[in-house]
Design a protein around this nucleic acid. Structure first.
Length: 806
RNA sequence: GCAUCAGUGGCGGAAUGGCAGACGCAGUGGACUCAAAAUCCACCGGUAGCGAUAUCGUGAGGGUUCAAAUCCCUCCUGAUGCACCA
């Protein structure tokens, strides 16, 4: 009898061997076929590893280990996305340098990851807070600046009126400061921006070249939100002023019965003398300033607004005089900050018109019954016909759009315009723990880049990490550091004191892994050429819009500048679902449903945790943690271990098991590539059940099972492999092959239905003739056919018989 | 509010146009044991029936099809993201 499997001893033993032998090191032999598997590097938080982390890591560890056995030179790296707010807040609270906090957290994370037996190439570890790393983050920023893609703009920030600091959105809870509970307002500040909108079309078009899962592509496209519409100029009545609006529905121009501008629109102050109710307007604007864009559109049901009394506009197509309102559902950040309102054909305008009793003029007629303007706006663009619209009458919406755009351009009252929901990237943070922005502001020369030879521009030591009272970053208090000579004219100048957002370091880290110690370039051309693109990148759905888009943007920029050789960074992108608590709620301290992976590793072993997280459910869906399920996976591994007691001689698969084994190899091989880790494990469980039923397993069968399971549970399988007397390790073995012909059963069972209802199953030979199968089927369901006539006979070969009777 | 995704036994889930519930957990019965745990074996959606079997059943309602968990429409519920958390 074999001894009971001791995961403590076995896992420790193999960690030591892997550390010493480094079998998972990516080689610089650029003649071998390469495979670059990437997981999003974690933010090393003070809480340590969450049970959510191992899910994607194990998945790509499986893929990496399998690919190595298939002969690839695999790059599977890990690093730390270590700048960020929580570290800084912890540092402020405990008066510890954020670098020290980061160092501790990284050490903890690394220990935890090592305890899980991942095949990361630890020699290529990167850390975004390492000056040797952020040197290149700053370098890329300078390239963006020099290419005209970085600029400064006045942007609103969240401002706590009591703490007198700028707050992250996350620090604003229900409109008040998370720390002190005081009121938070929007305050305008000049901030660095990156012109990602210049890349909007490239970011959409690039999606055609890559194999991202469909929902990721869809979400990216929707986030960029390209729309083709028109800008239309409305003259203000009695003033020498035009108000330009952006609309995707210029075809409904005849139905524009009023206009709405954003409360922040510059026109308001410009014409404050003309606005009779200016006080009312100002107080509305102040109220709106307290709301985020999100709140403003969320509260869409209860439309609010104020008419600009004394200001009216002229509809350019029918010369009607129409009122101008302000309302917070119009955002300054999208389009021109002004809209023409067509209440009959836009639901937001409709609600607004209903609240304030504004006229609703129908200009598109839908099919009979499709349109009831008493109840709601008619927004369908596919079935409508134009009415009440002068020269557009009788046209379809589609044709009307073309004709009105031609008309606008001809009469010079508007033009075609492509718009994006995507906004430029706010790149400034008034924080300490980030990359300093390497720009010097000179009164004479303006913004002057720090010379590349001076990079990295190090974060200076400061006494306090708390942002200053006027909302500047803590760096602003370091006058020695701030006051410099202008590199251009030698005159007095000041350093930029804002730092970069945490997104900066993560926008190019995958490039650094290819050549992490290079101090001449961010990575050598040779390394980039060989390793890029990333073959498979997995990360959370929550990064689909921001991180994924930002990093694609930087990569495309570097491609345009000739620094990288592929236009897209990632060939394949998948996303994993969250691991929820046993109550199917997100794990959080306050809910008390948090599971610590260390406890699972201690009690059941790393292999069990890995197996369980892969078995828990469909990889891309959320799954809830069940301690009993963990036990089941440990039981499965114990059954694998105890197969040692059923071992018999045999160099070939048992004849009776041959089909099952080839089927299992096929299923596991394919499922690992298709994110179906749960069914791959289920298939291996079935195979184990077969061996238990037979009360025997031969050497050839055991070997193949161990190889298939190795990527999932590397420690136990290596140990058994050694016990079985092999003189090598599994990681030196090649991945099992299957013979397609041997995966096919000769006799199959198919269902017989009568009128689509399952009645019986019959066993047939795979190559049986249709007539024979139908005859056998009719014989078997005789009872159900009595007194009926067969009107149709359906036989889908190898699948089903369906007899339609009357 | 907008966007994306999901809803199947007591539970986690499988099946994505062809036998609903693979696999696992829990449960029930049996073997082993003085006994328990562990382990091994068997059963395991509801209703009716001793049974063969019949019938219902994949969030709700409708539709397409010989055939729908799967495709289409309407609705309900939940999860995630929403640009300064990462």
């Amino acid at each position: 009898m074999s001894e009971i499997y001791n995961h403590h001893v076995v896992e420790k033993k193999w960690h030591k061997i892997w550390d010493e032998e480094k079998p998972f090191k990516a080689t610089t032999d650029y003649t071998k076929p390469k495979y670059y598997a990437l997981v999003e590097f974690p933010y090393p938080s003070g809480q340590g590893l969450h049970v959510g982390h191992p899910r994607p890591y194990t998945a790509l560890d499986i893929v990496s280990r399998k690919r190595r056995m298939q002969g690839y030179n695999v790059l599977f790296p890990m690093g730390w996305d270590a700048f960020g707010l929580p570290t800084e807040n912890y540092a402020i609270k405990n008066k510890i340098h954020p670098a020290a906090v980061t160092k501790n957290n990284v050490a903890r994370f690394k220990d935890q990851l090592k305890s899980l037996g991942y095949s990361f190439d630890w020699d290529r570890e990167v850390n975004t807070t390492d000056p040797n790393y952020y040197k290149w983050t700053q370098w890329i920023f300078l390239k963006l600046f020099k290419a005209g893609l970085a600029y400064k703009k006045e942007m609103p920030i969240n401002w706590c009126t009591s703490c007198k600091v700028g707050l992250a959105n996350e620090e604003v809870v229900n409109g008040v400061c998370e720390r002190c509970g005081s009121e938070v307002v929007r305050k305008v500040k000049s901030e660095w921006m990156l012109k990602i909108t210049d890349y909007a079309d490239k970011l959409i078009d690039g999606l055609n070249e890559v194999d991202y899962i469909e929902r990721v592509k869809t979400q990216q496209k929707n986030w960029i939100g390209r729309s083709e519409g028109a800008e239309v100029d409305f003259k203000l009545n009695g003033l020498d002023e035009t108000l330009t609006v952006y609309t995707t529905r210029p075809d409904t121009l005849f139905g524009a019965t009023y206009m709405v501008i954003s409360p922040e629109h510059p026109l308001i102050d410009k014409y404050k003398d003309k606005i009779e109710n200016f006080d009312e307007v100002v107080s509305y604007r102040e109220a709106a300033a307290k709301k985020s864009d999100f709140e403003r559109t969320e509260l869409a049901k209860d439309k609010t607004g104020v008419a600009l009394k004394g200001i009216t506009a002229i509809n350019p197509v029918n010369d009607e005089i129409i009122p101008v309102w302000i309302s917070d559902y119009v955002l300054m950040s999208y389009g021109t900050g002004a809209i023409m309102a067509v209440p009959a054909h836009d639901s937001r305008d409709y609600e607004f018109a209903k609240v304030f009793n504004l006229p609703i003029v129908q200009v598109v007629e839908g099919p009979e019954g499709a349109c009831d303007l008493e109840k709601e706006a008619f927004t369908d663009v596919y079935t409508g016909t134009m009415i009440n619209s002068g020269f557009l009458n009788g046209l379809s919406v589609e044709d009307a759009k073309v004709k009105i755009k031609d008309f606008l351009e001809e009469k010079k009252i508007g033009h075609r315009k492509v718009n994006y929901k995507l906004r430029d990237w706010v790149f400034s943070r008034q924080r300490y723990w980030g990359e300093p922005i390497p720009i010097i502001e000179c009164e004479k020369c303006g913004f002057v880049p720090v010379d590349e030879s001076e990079l990295p521009l190090l974060l200076p030591e400061v006494e306090s990490y708390v942002p200053t009272d006027n909302g500047e970053s803590p760096l602003a208090a370091m006058t020695d550091w701030v006051n410099v000579k202008c590199p251009c004219c030698g005159g007095p100048a000041k350093r930029e004191t804002d730092t970069m957002p945490q997104w900066a370091g993560s926008s190019w880290y995958f490039l650094r892994y290819t050549d992490p110690d290079n101090d001449k370039e961010f990575a050598s051309k040779e390394a980039l050429n060989y390793w890029m693109p990333v073959d498979w990148y997995n990360g959370g759905m929550e990064h689909t819009t921001l991180h994924l888009l930002y990093s694609r943007f930087w990569h495309k920029f570097l491609y345009d500048e000739g620094y990288v050789t592929t236009s897209e960074p990632y060939q394949k992108r998948t996303s994993h679902g969250m691991i929820l608590g046993s109550d199917s709620q997100k794990m959080s301290k306050s809910r008390g449903n948090v599971i610590n992976p260390d406890d699972i590793v201690r009690d059941y072993g790393a292999d069990t945790l890995r197996t369980y997280e892969m078995f828990i459910g469909a990889f891309d869906l959320a799954a809830s943690w069940q301690e009993d399920g963990v036990k089941g996976c440990r039981r499965f591994l114990d059954r694998i271990w105890k197969l040692q007691d059923l071992l018999v001689d045999g160099d070939a698969y048992d004849k009776d098991n041959e089909t099952k084994i080839h089927q299992t190899i096929k299923k596991v091989t394919n499922d690992f590539e298709n994110l179906k880790f749960n069914t791959a494990i289920a298939a291996m469980m079935e195979l184990v059940n077969v061996f238990y039923k037979d009360k025997k397993v031969n050497k050839a069968e055991y070997d193949v099972l161990l190889k298939l399971l190795n990527p999932v549970a590397p420690h136990i399988t290596e140990e058994i492999w050694e016990i079985l007397g092999h003189d090598n390790h599994i990681y030196n073995e090649t991945w099992p092959e299957y013979d397609e012909a041997k995966t096919v059963e000769q006799t199959i069972e198919i269902a017989v239905q009568v009128n689509g209802k399952m009645k019986k199953t019959i066993n047939i030979l795979l190559d049986s003739a249709k007539e024979d199968v139908l005859a056998e089927a009719k014989e078997q369901v005789k009872g159900s056919l009595e007194g009926k006539t067969i009107v149709k006979e359906i036989y889908v070969p190898g699948r089903i018989v369906n007899l339609v009777v009357k």
